[in-house]
């Protein structure tokens, strides 16, 4: 459905006919898409449309009931999350999932786990290679903290940061795993307007590094501003897929959204933006 909206180089992630049942409830009813390398792909849809379930199926927290998830040419469905992370897929969580009792710096250092190798023995005996590696872990983590602008807070416990900064820290931790693709589950949830703008800039910076971004988000201004492509989920199915302007023009999408109680979903796509007052997003 509309998959060829963007000229399709070899996709970094594809999923075919992904279905997910929880007992009698079907959260995903056969979702397919191909995500080209290097784009910002948004996934939108009303609450309960299956967006987070889709992310969980991709990152390995859930195993799809049927269908396949292919990441960098390899089927990854059913693999444990830490192996998928090692292959270059990282993520953040809708409800912040930091390590609250560890420092900001240490949180990002954990992100380096899959790219380093000192084990029990090397660590216990402080072998020279382990000490060199430990130094690199600290430096790499500091670099990512500078990249997202959290360096001044590096020694605070992660749980002591305000929500906005916790969300940014989660992104830094995910970036520290050297991802090829990063899944962000509502990173703007709970952020104010200025913070959301900064987040948009950060996502652009991440894309500029060559990382593919898959963004689940309710904030329509953010989605329409930065996405190269938007996938709309509705009741566990793909309703539409295309560029932001195509999505805004799509009568089915408009109907689905205006039919729902759209106000509570974060409120970007209200009268104003639908009537097309901005040049880059004509509706």
């Amino acid at each position: 459905m509309g998959d060829r909206a963007v000229p399709d180089a070899s996709p970094v992630l594809e999923f075919h006919d992904v279905r997910m049942h929880f007992g009698g409830v079907t959260a995903l009813k056969g979702v397919s898409s191909r995500i080209p390398k290097g784009i910002i792909q948004s996934v939108i849809g009303p609450n309960g449309a299956g967006k987070t379930t889709l992310l969980n199926c991709i990152s390995g927290l859930l195993t799809p009931s049927s269908g396949s998830v292919v990441f960098r040419g390899e089927a990854v469905q059913g693999k444990p999350p830490h192996e998928i992370a090692r292959r270059g897929l990282s993520r953040t969580f809708q409800h912040v999932a930091l390590f609250p009792r560890m420092s900001v710096w240490e949180n990002v250092m954990v992100g380096r786990h899959a790219r380093t190798r000192a084990g029990f023995w090397a660590a216990g005996f402080r072998l020279p290679f382990m000490r060199a590696e430990e130094r690199r872990i600290r430096e790499d983590a500091e670099r990512w903290l500078e990249f997202v602008g959290l360096h001044p807070e590096k020694d605070l416990p992660a749980g002591a940061l305000p929500l906005g900064k916790q969300k940014i820290l989660e992104i830094a931790r995910a970036l520290a795993t050297d991802p090829v693709l990063i899944l962000l589950d509502e990173p703007a949830g709970g952020l104010n307007t200025r913070e959301t703008e900064e987040l948009g800039d950060l996502l652009k910076k991440i894309q500029a590094k060559g990382v593919t971004v898959v963004l689940v988000e309710h904030d329509m201004n953010l989605v329409m501003d930065i996405s190269d492509r938007v996938l709309v989920l509705h009741f566990g199915q793909v309703l539409a897929c295309g560029s932001p302007s195509e999505i805004k023009d799509n009568p089915e999408v408009i109907q689905a959204y205006l039919g729902e109680d759209w106000a509570e979903a974060g409120g970007g796509l209200t009268g104003n933006s639908l009537s097309g007052d901005r040049e880059d997003t004509p509706c």
């Binding site: 999932a97 560890m102 250092m109 660590a123 216990g124 430990e134």
Partner: peptide
């Protein structure tokens, strides 16, 4: 020494949030 290494950080991460630790590799 183990606790103050990548292994120890991973252990503390597991204690704080297993799901997130797993997702970080």
């Amino acid at each position: 020494h183990v606790l103050h290494s990548r292994v120890g950080r991973a252990l503390r991460a597991i204690h704080d949030d297993e799901k997130a630790a797993e997702a970080m590799g």
